[in-house]
Amino acid sequence: MNRELSATRLNDEITQAHLADDRYRLCALYLQAGEMKEAAGDINAACFLFTQAYVYGLDSGNEDDSSKARARLVAYGRDK
């Protein structure tokens, strides 16, 4: 229940960040969403979200979070 609630809130925040074109924040939010999917064992969904985080991080200069997203993608053989 808590996880579903949290996921709903995260989706809302992602929508808001898209509306605001806040790419730095999008990186952080997609990373968080990816980590949730990863914890749930859905690696494909997690890697989709890590990719979104990685790209928005590269674009906005959010180096910390984009590095984390990239590290997860590399670990799963999805990027280099």
């Binding site: 494909n44 890590f50 990719t51 990685y54 790209v55 590269l58 999805r78």
Partner: peptide, 14 residues
């Protein structure tokens, strides 16, 4: 070229 998101399918960038 740094990354090619989803180029190999969703979540696969290679």
């Amino acid at each position: 070229l740094r990354t090619t998101p989803h180029v190999g399918g969703p979540g696969q960038n290679l």
